[in-house]
Amino acid sequence: MNIFRLSGDLSHLLAILLLLVKIWKTRSCAGISGKSQILFAIVYTTRYLDLFTSFVSVYNSFMKVVFLTASYGTLYLMFFKFKPTYDHNHDSFRILYLIIPSLVLSFIIVHVYTVMEILWTYSIYLEAVAIMPQLFMVSRTGEAETITSHYLFALGSYRALYILNWIYRYYTEDFLDMIVIIAGIVQTILYCDFFYLYITKVLKGKRLSLP
């Protein structure tokens, strides 16, 4: 554990909780992509199956349980409790275009051919692109609520902080996992456009709207 990894995890946690609280308080999931949320649920489920097979630390297990619970809680709010507020007309990204290639890639580039390792690798590849339906939705509607922007910023920062963590771990522990590093870089690059808009608009008190 180092400061970059901890900050990344806390940023990730903040993002997930921010989204849950936003939906709960406003009684609405308008502007949120249900498809991205489905992808994140697949990501956490396939990655955290190791809750049952290996123990790293109380911290790790606790965070995994929180991420899983919050993710399924978000899906419940979006597709059951506040379903009428779900803006599915603008959530039109075809997620099979992300699900299938990630799955194929996880069979081609993987450290070891075991079911658990392929599922873990799949979760890494899918996570890298899971935000695309949400970013697509923002580009289609041309705007995002400020709280949604904060959510996206926290979620994007998490993997960027993990990149610093991997650089740190490379020098201090000789840790080098190219699968997770390359996927993490791709994931962070996808947010760059949004980061720019966030810094130039949202942080200056303006609403995030596209020209």
Binding site: R5, D50, V56, S57, N60, K64, V112, E117, L176, D177
Partner: peptide
């Protein structure tokens, strides 16, 4: 790689 060890990140 570290593939024989459990993944210690989230």
């Amino acid at each position: 790689s570290k593939s024989e060890e459990p993944h210690d990140e989230l």
